[in-house]
Design a protein around this nucleic acid. Structure first.
Length: 912
RNA sequence: GGCGCGGUGGCGGAAUUGGUAGACGCGCAGGUCUCAAAAACCUGUGAUAGACAACUAUCAUGUGGGUUCGAUUCCCACCCGCGCCACCA
C-alpha cells in the first residue's frame, strides 16, 4: 500500500476537489449520456455510433481492485479517443450482481445476499464513478434486478421451447467441507476455491443448454472474428473439433463365439483419430461407466471367464473416485479383464477387452482400441497387463526395432509397416486410406467429435434467477408436457418437426415453462439461504415458493427450485444496455443515490417495450448492435465469451436479433501483478484503487496503470513508479500554469516539430492500444518543452491537453477551462475538452531540415553525421560526407572498400 | 503432455517490411536551493578495460548454431518462466 508520507504532504494541485467538481459538472450537462433511441446524438454534429463495451464487474469483494480499474481505464481511453474522433460513443456499465461469487462473499460476511447486494452496489458504483470513465449513468443495469432477470428467465424459456434446454443426470462438483455444490469455475485444480479442499462428484439431475448444437457454427465463425488471437485459439481448442472414425468390433468369447443378447449381436464401438495404426491394436478398453458393462453382467452365467464380482468391485471403486484421484492417483493404469474379446477384422486378431478408468466415458464413445506401440497411455496399460506391443509405424530415424520402453512409443509422423495394404504410406495418407477401407467394408463410419460439452445451467444455490420451469407429476404420468400443448406449434419447425417434438415431449414429460406473463419468478427473500449438505437447493425447502399450479392441467405442480448459472446472466447483458430506459436511472440514481431494492417488483415506469415480447427495443438494438468494441480479460475465453456467442446465435436463429455474433471486435487486456506476484488476498498484495486515488488522484493512477506496460500484457504495479507518474502530472500542471501566465503566442521551431510528432504518435498508439508508449512520447514532449524554456504557445498547450485528455480526463478539463479563460459558472457541454475534435497532424511540418545518418564500417557504428535532408537521400553526397569524417576515415585508410551499402536517410555502411 | 505468451540494465519496459540496442519512467549517485529536511530543478547512470575528465576499445537483448555488409528482429536446435487446457483416444 502507498504509505509514503511524502506523497501525502506533497500536492501539486487539489486533485480531489477538481475531480469532484468535474464529475458533478459533467453529470449536470449529461456529457456521457447517449440518447440511444435518437438517430444521431442530439448534442452536436451528426456522428457515427460506437458501442464501446467493457466486461461488467461482479461484486464479490469489498470493492473494485486495481485490476478492474486497469481494464476499465484502457477501454475508456479508447472510447474517449473515438468520441474525440467524432463518434457517438456509448459506454455503459453495470453489475453482474447475481451468482455464487457474490453469494459466497455475503456468506463470508454473514449478510443476506440481497442485503449485501445493496451495500456492494453502492460501493462499486461509488468507485466506478471515481475512476473517470465516460460511463453513461443513465443506463446501468444489475443482473439481480427483477427487471433484468425477468428476461434471463425468458431466455431460459425460449431455450426450452426451442428444444435447446433439457434435463439429464450429470456429475457436479461437491465440496465436502463447505457442504455445497460448486460451479466448475470455482474448482481450481480439483480443489474448492474457498477452502482448498478436494472436490468430489455427485450425480444429480440437471438442466443443460444444448450449446453443442452450435459447435460447428461457433468454430466456423471464430475464424473471421476480429478478436485477440489467443482468445480465438482458446475457443477453437475448447470446441475441439476432431475428425475420426467409429469402428465397430464384434464381441466374442474365448472360443471365438459371437455373443448376443436377445438376438442382438454384442458390439463395442471405439472412436479413434488414428485408424492408420489399427493393425497394431492389441486390446480394447471401455470406461467404467460404459453400457457394455451392463450387457457383460447379463451374460455372465453363460461365460465362465467373466469374473463378475471382480468387475463390479472395480467399477464401483472407479465410480467413487473423484476426477482428481483418477488423474493424479499416481496416473498408474488400473483395470480388470472383462473375460471377452473384440475381433479386429483387419487381421482377425482377438483383442482382450478391459475395463479401466483411464478411459473417460464422456470422450469419444467411451471405449478405445489399444495401440500400445503408438500411444503412451496404451503402452503403459499394455505393460501393466503384459499385453503384446506391435510396431506399425517407423519414424524418420528408421528405427524399426520392437518397442520395449515408453520412450520408443512412436506417436509422431512416420511410415507404415506391419500393416498390410498400408505398408510404406505415411501416416496421413494411411489414415485416409484406412478410413475409406473401413467405411467400404461397413466396419466403421467417419465421425466428427467435439470437446465442447453442453452447458450445465442448474445451480443448487440461492443467489440466482430461479429456473422458470414447472413440473407436474400428473401430466408426466399422462405423457403430457408443454410439447403436447397448442403453444408448441410456432416452434415446431425450429425444433425439427413433429417426430422431434414427440421425442422431446417424452423426455420432458410433465415439464412446462412458466408462462411469459408470469415472469419474473421472483427470488423470495428467505432466511435459510445457505447451501445445505444434502445438495438440495435452498428454495426446495420453501413450500410457498415451489407449490404452484400446472400450466397444462391446472392441477397441483411444483416449481423448479434450482437457480441458473451466473454465466447465463452475463450472456446477454450487452443486448440490454442500449435499451435501458432513461427514466429508470433518473429515479434510481445509479450512483451517489441508494442502490436499488434488490427484491422490488418491476417498476411501474418500466418502458413500454418491456411489456412486449422482447427484453430490448428492436429499433435501438438494430442501430447499436453488435457491439463495436468489447474489452475484457482473456480468462473468459471459453466461458462468458463462448456463452454470449451461443446465446446470440440462438436469438438470431429464433428471429429476435439480426446478427449472429455479439462482439465485432474483442480486445483482451493483460493482468496486473504486484511486485512480481499475482495479486491475491492470501499474499496480502491486493491493490485497491481508492487509496491511490485519494493520494494521487484518478488521473495519475489511470496514467500510471497505462504506463506500466503494453495493455495486452498487463504490468507490474510498483508504488515508487506510481509516484513518478504523479510527479509528471505535477510537471504538466505547472508547465500549463506557466504558459498561461506568460500568455505565450509563439512556439519554437523545435517544439513545433516535436508537437507534430507527438500528435502522430499518440493517435497511432491509442488506435493500437499502445498506451504505454503514447504516454512516454508525451513525457518526451514535455521534457523538450522544458529544454526549450517553455517556448510554447497557448494554442499548442491546448493541443497537448487534447492528446492527454483521454488518459487524464479530470485535470486536462480543468486546465482546458483555464487556458480558455472560461468561467466555470457558465460551463456548458460544448466547452468541455472531451468533445473537442482530436487534433490533426500536419505531415509536412514533421520534415526536418537536417537528418542524422549512421555511418558504419563492416556493420559497426563509427560515426553519426548530420546531413541536410535533401542530401540525405543521395548516395554520392552522403558517402562523400561520411568519408570526410575523421572517425570513419581512420577505419578506411589502408583498406579497400569492397561495397557501400546505403539506406536513404538512414545509414551508410562501408564493407572493407 | 497439448496449446498460447514471454525471456533486453539494479527494476517496469522502448526499439521488429533486419539498419544508432536500452526511448520513457523508477531506483541510485552527485549538485542547486535551504539553518536543515521535504518538494522542485540540474547533471550522470548497461558491463569491462585503458589514468575510468565526458576520449577510446571490447563485450552485451535466455543458450548454441545459421543466413546477412549488418540480427533483439529472420531460420534451426535447445534451456528457463508464466498462463490456459489436460489420461479427449
Amino acid at each position: 500500500m502507498a504509505k509514503k508520507s511524502s506523497a501525502v504532504l506533497r500536492s501539486y494541485f487539489d486533485h480531489t476537489a477538481i475531480e469532484a467538481k468535474w464529475r458533478e459538472k459533467w453529470l449536470a450537462v449529461e456529457i456521457d449520456s447517449v440518447d440511444t433511441s435518437a438517430t444521431t446524438c442530439a448534442k452536436d454534429r451528426e456522428r457515427g455510433l460506437y458501442y464501446n463495451l467493457m466486461m461488467f464487474p461482479y461484486p464479490s469483494a469489498e470493492g473494485l481492485h486495481v485490476g478492474n480499474m486497469y481494464a476499465f481505464t484502457g477501454a475508456d481511453i479508447f472510447g474517449r479517443f473515438k468520441r474525440m474522433q467524432g463518434y457517438n460513443v456509448f459506454e455503459p456499465i453495470g453489475l453482474d450482481g447475481f451468482g455464487i461469487h457474490s453469494e459466497n462473499y455475503a456468506l463470508k460476511l454473514g449478510n443476506h445476499p440481497a442485503d449485501q447486494a445493496k451495500i456492494s452496489a453502492q460501493n462499486f458504483y461509488r468507485q466506478l464513478a471515481s475512476i473517470g470513465c465516460m460511463f453513461d449513468w443513465g443506463k446501468t443495469l444489475e443482473t439481480h434486478d427483477p427487471d433484468y432477470y425477468r428476461w434471463t428467465q425468458w431466455i431460459f424459456v425460449q431455450m426450452f421451447k426451442h428444444g435447446l434446454a433439457y434435463r439429464a443426470k450429470a456429475k457436479v462438483n461437491w465440496c465436502p467441507s463447505c457442504k455445497t455444490v460448486l460451479a466448475d469455475e470455482q474448482v481450481i485444480d480439483e480443489a474448492c476455491e474457498r477452502c482448498g479442499n478436494k472436490v468430489s462428484n455427485r450425480l444429480l439431475e440437471q438442466w443443460f443448454f444444448r450449446i453443442t448444437a452450435y459447435a460447428e457454427k461457433l468454430l466456423e465463425n471464430s475464424f473471421s472474428l476480429d478478436w485477440s488471437r489467443k482468445v480465438k485459439i482458446a475457443q477453437q481448442n475448447w470446441i475441439g473439433k476432431k475428425e475420426g472414425i467409429d469402428i465397430k468390433y464384434s464381441v466374442v468369447d474365448e472360443n471365438g463365439k459371437q455373443l448376443a443378447i436377445n438376438h442382438q449381436q454384442l458390439i463395442i464401438t471405439c472412436f479413434t483419430t488414428r485408424p492408420d495404426t489399427n493393425f497394431g491394436a492389441t486390446f480394447v478398453v471401455v470406461a467404467p461407466e460404459h453400457p457394455f458393462i451392463a450387457s457383460l453382467l447379463k451374460i455372465k452365467d453363460q461365460e465362465p471367464k467373466i469374473k463378475d464380482k471382480e468387475i463390479e468391485k472395480y467399477v464401483e471403486e472407479a465410480k467413487k473416485k473423484s476426477k482428481e484421484e483418477r488423474i493424479t492417483g499416481g496416473r498408474k493404469k488400473t483395470g480388470v479383464f472383462a473375460g471377452l474379446y473384440c475381433v479386429n477384422q483387419l487381421n482377425n486378431y482377438k483383442m482382450p477387452i478391459y475395463i479401466s478408468d483411464f478411459v473417460i466415458s464422456e470422450a469419444g464413445t467411451g471405449a478405445v482400441v489399444g495401440v500400445p506401440g503408438h500411444d503412451k497411455r496404451d503402452f503403459e496399460f499394455a505393460q501393466t497387463f503384459d499385453l503384446p506391443v506391435i510396431r506399425v509405424v517407423v519414424a524418420a530415424d528408421g528405427d524399426a526395432s520392437p518397442i520395449t520402453n515408453i520412450d520408443q512409443v512412436q506417436e509422431a509422423d512416420g511410415n507404415m509397416m506391419n500393416s498390410g495394404f498400408l505398408n510404406g504410406m505415411d501416416i496421413r495418407q494411411a489414415t485416409k486410406e484406412m478410413m475409406d477401407y473401413l467405411e467400404q467394408k461397413g466396419w466403421g463410419k467417419r465421425v466428427v467429435t467435439y470437446h465442447l460439452r453442453d452447458w450445465l445451467i442448474s445451480r443448487q444455490r440461492y443467489w440466482g434467477p430461479p429456473i422458470p420451469m414447472i413440473y407436474c407429476e400428473n401430466c408426466a404420468k399422462a405423457g403430457k408436457s408443454w410439447f403436447t400443448t397448442e403453444e408448441v406449434k410456432p416452434y415446431i419447425e425450429s425444433i425439427g418437426g413433429w417426430p422431434a417434438c414427440q421425442r422431446l415431449s417424452a423426455a420432458m414429460a410433465g415439464r412446462y415453462p412458466v408462462p411469459d406473463d408470469q415472469l419474473p419468478v421472483l427470488l423470495p427473500y428467505i432466511k435459510d439461504y445457505k447451501p445445505s449438505d444434502d445438495g438440495v437447493a435452498p428454495l426446495a425447502k420453501h413450500r410457498e415458493f415451489y407449490e404452484t399450479k400446472c400450466p397444462g392441467c391446472d392441477g397441483k405442480a411444483v416449481r423448479e427450485t434450482d437457480v441458473s448459472d451466473t454465466f447465463l446472466d452475463s450472456s446477454w447483458y450487452f443486448l440490454k444496455y442500449p435499451s435501458v430506459a432513461v427514466e429508470k436511472s433518473r429515479s434510481g440514481g445509479a450512483f451517489f443515490g441508494d442502490a436499488k431494492q434488490a427484491q422490488s417488483k418491476p417498476s411501474d415506469n418500466f418502458p413500454s417495450f418491456s411489456e412486449s415480447s422482447l427484453p430490448w427495443d428492436p429499433v435501438i438494438t438494430k442501430k447499436w448492435l453488435p457491439v463495436h468494441m468489447y474489452t475484457g480479460g482473456a480468462e473468459h475465453s471459453v466461458l462468458h465469451l463462448m456463452y454470449s456467442r451461443f446465446v446470440t446465435m440462438a436469438l438470431h436463429d429464433w428471429g429476435y436479433v439480426d446478427f449472429d455474433e455479439p462482439f465485432t471486435r474483442f480486445y483482451a487486456h493483460g493482468l496486473v501483478i504486484k511486485d512480481g506476484a499475482k495479486m491475491s488476498k492470501s499474499k496480502c498484495n491486493v491493490v485497491t484503487p481508492d487509496e491511490y486515488i485519494r493520494l494521487y488522484g484518478a488521473d495519475s493512477l489511470r496514467l500510471y496503470l497505462m504506463f506500466m506496460g503494453p495493455y495486452d500484457q498487463g504490468g507490474d504495479f510498483q508504488d515508487a513508479a506510481m509516484e513518478g507518474m504523479y510527479r509528471w502530472v505535477g510537471r504538466v500542471w505547472r508547465m500549463a500554469q506557466k504558459i498561461i501566465k506568460q500568455q505565450s503566442q509563439e512556439t519554437s521551431t523545435t517544439l513545433a516539430i516535436a508537437l507534430q510528432k507527438v500528435i502522430k504518435k499518440v493517435g497511432e498508439d491509442i488506435e493500437n492500444r499502445r498506451y504505454n508508449t503514447a504516454i512516454a512520447s508525451m513525457m518526451e514532449f514535455t521534457n523538450v518543452v522544458a529544454d526549450e524554456e517553455y517556448a510554447l504557445s497557448l494554442a499548442d498547450v491546448k493541443i497537448l491537453l487534447l492528446l492527454l485528455a483521454p488518459f487524464a480526463p479530470y485535470f486536462t478539463e480543468e486546465l482546458w477551462q483555464q487556458v480558455n479563460k472560461k468561467s466555470e459558472d457558465t460551463f456548458t457541454l460544448s466547452k468541455s475538452i472531451h468533445i473537442q475534435p482530436w487534433p490533426a497532424f500536419d505531415p509536412r511540418a514533421i520534415v526536418e531540415q537536417t537528418v542524422s545518418i549512421v555511418v558504419q564500417v563492416n556493420g559497426k557504428v563509427r560515426d553519426i553525421i548530420i546531413v541536410k535532408s535533401q542530401k540525405s537521400k543521395v548516395k554520392s553526397e552522403v558517402e562523400q560526407e561520411a568519408r570526410a569524417s575523421v572517425k570513419v576515415s581512420k577505419y578506411l585508410t589502408g583498406q579497400t572498400v569492397k561495397k557501400v551499402i546505403f539506406v536513404p536517410g538512414k545509414i551508410v555502411n562501408f564493407v572493407v
